[in-house]
Design a protein around this nucleic acid. Structure first.
Lengths: 191, 191, 191, 191
DNA sequence: GATGAATGAGGGTTCATTCAT
DNA sequence: AATGAATGAACCCTCATTCAT
């Protein structure tokens, strides 16, 4: 399936928008910033998006963690221990957060003032949480609701950890160790 | 120690600022909004604060969760079980979040774009986390670092929970139950 | 004389332009609006017209009341009373205004800012006024200048009436009666 | 009753707005144009008016013909002939139009696209028409509705005349004579 | 002929900040 | 201390026009 030229350029703008929004936040970014980042002029953005918020929306729709989490579930083999599974999941989460360092912060920030964005964020987290919890509770015979709280807390704590302690290449807190500790504790909760 | 008139008026502005910033976020609030909320005119704010950000800073300094947490530790009696202690702590946290519903969201939001604010937020969380962890690990003979991760995760997950699921009077998720579950799991981690 | 393809398409654009300009005014209409109304894309309009104003000009040239008024004169029989003639004329004027409800308003509106358009409008009204006045003064042996003022006032008052009191299907003032009264008074002036 | 400073400046902006709007039309004028004309910066206009349209509205409210027409009625003596009265009225109308040469054109132009403005214009004309007609029909024992049509037609024809034939200092049509002719015919209608 | 992506100037509006009163 | 008029930079967005395809 080849991409049309329209789609290609639209994607280019979305990538530029992601970079700029992530760097400066939504209201801190100007349309001109984004146009410059994409190597076009400001007017063009309005050819592909209705307005600034519509661009943000486009970015959010394009970048989601959930697809990766589904894959982890899908390709997890029979004999995986719960610790191994948790490690896979948390590693994927942290990789995602590192690949798009400020995306989650921008997303969360906008969610505070924009109800539509908030609903989308809640929904994504719910989908991820429920998907993982369903899988785990099923596979290891645990109570769904109990698992769900644990998973959601771990997920959201990871987001917060990322938001607060990841400063460019200079993480305030050792990440490796944080993941290890977190897995260990989550594992304890689930056993 | 009686308050000077200067201090009184300054506090009034801080309270007004907190209310407005919490309602509309930092960049969504105007100096005029805040002046109106305080019943003064916009120019006056510049008598008490250098600029908008300085006002935000004043607000943050004035409103902290940590004082309450210290009190919980200070007045906790000898024979408190760990579950009881955890309940006290989480309840205090949630009460704080409910009293100033959007404060944490504003704080976190600004922390993303403003490094000075971010450092302050990290510091506050670190102080709270370390204080509680030190107390708990000491009292119940647990490894400090292990406790710290658990406490920080729980604390930040609570913030996230508040950010995402508290919609005015219509919480998306039952709070009572969320606290119970979270305590139960934290307790399991710490035992 | 068969129409070339070029002329056909040009006319189509003119008709679309008339509809859109009439609906939204000149500066309220966009080239895209008109292109869409015509079922083409915006670029094409620049094949047939130099720019937006040139299109307006094309529209104005194509739509004129005067042709109809000439016909009324041309086909008026010998024994027509002056009241019957006046009725024919005013009816034609009002029918024209109703067929192209907002055309005159757009025309007049643009005439205010655009001297070229103003000259054209004045000219059209002068032609119509003079033509009618010449015919009437001749036929009924009246002073030309006296008739001219009466005719022009009646004509322009009708335009104004249309501009102000015709709101879609809900005319603010009863039209039938307005025409009757106006004829009666014009007739009195001319007798 | 002394004017406050606020009112004075507001009036200054209204006068500047009137001049600029009249010269260039509403959408042809920029806020900066008006600010420059008033000798202030653009931002200040928003201190006194909500937006561009609100300024237009302020202008319209401030400049009305009707007050003058009321005075003519009020101070007309007992033994005035109908021709003298008509002359007074039409002279007042034309003086008004000459004092604010493009005001009526701007007003009428905006009335076409802005329903609120249209309603106001219709209302003003109705008030003027009804006031004059009531007075005339009463004083000279004529049918009100019959007088009303005549008055409204004369009034609106005068507006149109002004719109079309007044070009700066070079009127296309001799005004003195136009007034005379118009009075003569109106008088004939009313006798 | 026809498309529609791309430009870029320009408009209305907001608002932190200053300062004369 | 307190006011609020005034500034002016910056922002989002529109749209006539051009041009490669």
């Amino acid at each position: 399936m080849t991409k049309t030229k329209y789609t290609e350029k639209r994607d280019l703008l979305i990538e530029a928008g992601l970079r700029v929004f992530s760097r400066k936040g939504f209201s801190g970014s100007t349309i001109k910033d984004i146009a410059q980042e994409a190597g076009v002029t400001s007017g063009l953005i309005y050819h592909y998006f209705d307005n600034k918020e519509d661009l943000l929306w486009g970015i959010i729709e394009e970048h989601t963690l959930n697809h990766k989490l589904y894959n982890i579930i899908k390709f997890s083999t029979e004999d995986l221990t719960i610790d191994e599974l948790l490690k896979n999941i948390l590693t994927a989460v942290f990789n995602f957060l590192k690949e798009k360092p400020y995306f989650i912060s921008m997303f969360l920030g906008e969610a505070q003032r924009n109800p539509k964005i908030r609903k989308r964020l809640i929904n994504l987290i719910r989908e991820a949480t429920e998907g993982l919890s369903y899988f785990i509770s099923n596979k290891y015979k645990l109570d769904f609701h109990y698992v769900e709280v644990a998973v959601r807390n771990t997920l959201t704590a990871s987001f917060m950890h990322h938001l607060l302690y990841m400063e460019g290449d200079n993480p305030v807190i050792n990440e490796e160790r944080y993941i290890q500790n977190t897995i260990q504790q989550l594992s304890k909760v689930l056993n």
